[in-house]
Amino acid sequence: MSEHSYPTSLGASTADQITLFGHDLAEDLMGRVGFGELAFWLVARRRPTPGQVRVFEAVLVALADHGFTPTAIAARMTYLSAPDSLQGALAAGLLGGGSRFLGVTEDCGSYLADVLARHADDRPPDDAPDEAWDALALTAVRESHEAGRYVPGLGHPVHKERDPRTPRLMRIAEEEGLRGPHLRLFDAIGRTHEQVLGRRLPLNGAGVCGAALADLGLPPDLLRGVSLLARTAGLLGQIAEERVHPVGMDVYLHVDRNASYVDPGDPDDETG
């Protein structure tokens, strides 16, 4: 036996057995535990309830695919260039998950958690009506506005009036008794931000997913990983479709053939 020890609660294997969380992988988990349940279990280090699984999997579905987004285009273009590297195409798409796309899930969850922590004394009780959260929401939006920062989860480049994922996920969390302080604060921000910003913006799907995951007790700094997990399935679907209905070459040729030269010394050149 080695004198070194590397503790883990996750997977381990011997010549004839694989265990995960101390359970026999083949006999106890395969065919008995869904992938969404297992993913939650791995991140949270605790087995979720059926209600938590439903909310978590709703988040995964909400974030899996959203059309020809930059992440999808990056994956398709990389596959066009290197069809022998499926992993490269997937990685290219995932690397685009940042502050504008996908990363909002983590940004919003962290933002809401920070507001709740800093204003713990002002937080309404759990049985308070929704409107009781409006004052805290106004304070949070004012603080962000005065500091020159955006409120994560507000606005969407396509859904200008309403992101259809937001009310649906709110309802699912409510049905499962899991609409907690992060979702309630986020909902209140949706009701009140116009008083500070002077315009109305929709609560986007990535933001509500972050709020829902935070209410499930997942660490805010791991939430981007959940959105990337979801988008991996979507990107695999994009690549599968590219194989039978390719658009990558058309995208490349359209951009390349419509490129126009700009004098780098041109004062009207905004790239300088």
Rank of each mutant, 00 (worst) to 15 (best):
G34E: 08
R46P: 09
G36C: 02
Y79Q: 02
R76L: 03
R46F: 11
R45G: 12
L63Y: 08
M30T: 09
R54K: 09
R46G: 10
G51T: 05
V55G: 03
F40V: 04
T69R: 07
A39C: 13
F56I: 08
R46W: 09
R45N: 15
F35N: 07
P50F: 07
Q52L: 02
E57F: 12
V33T: 12
P48R: 05
A62W: 10
L42V: 03
S81V: 12
P50N: 12
V43C: 10
G31T: 01
F40C: 02
A64P: 06
F35A: 10
L60V: 01
R46I: 03
L42P: 03
P50A: 09
M77L: 08
G51I: 01
R54I: 06
V33R: 01
F56M: 07
V53K: 04
T69M: 11
D65F: 07
D65C: 14
L38Q: 03
L38I: 11
M77W: 09
P70R: 01
Y79G: 01
V55H: 04
G36T: 04
S81C: 09
A39N: 14
F40S: 03
E37Y: 04
G31Y: 00
A75I: 11
L63W: 12
M30W: 11
F68G: 11
G34I: 10
L29S: 00
A82E: 13
A62R: 13
G31N: 05
I73W: 07
T78R: 11
H66N: 06
P50M: 07
R32H: 10
L38M: 06
V53S: 05
V53Q: 03
V61M: 12
T78L: 13
A82V: 13
A75S: 15
Y79F: 06
Q52G: 03
L63F: 14
F68Y: 10
H66C: 05
A72V: 13
M77P: 08
A64S: 10
G51M: 04
A58K: 08
M30L: 07
H66V: 05
P70W: 00
R32W: 07
A72D: 13
R76F: 05
V61D: 03
Q52I: 02
A82I: 10
R46Q: 11
V53E: 08
A44S: 09
L38V: 14
F68E: 13
G36P: 03
R47C: 09
T71K: 14
G51P: 01
R32F: 08
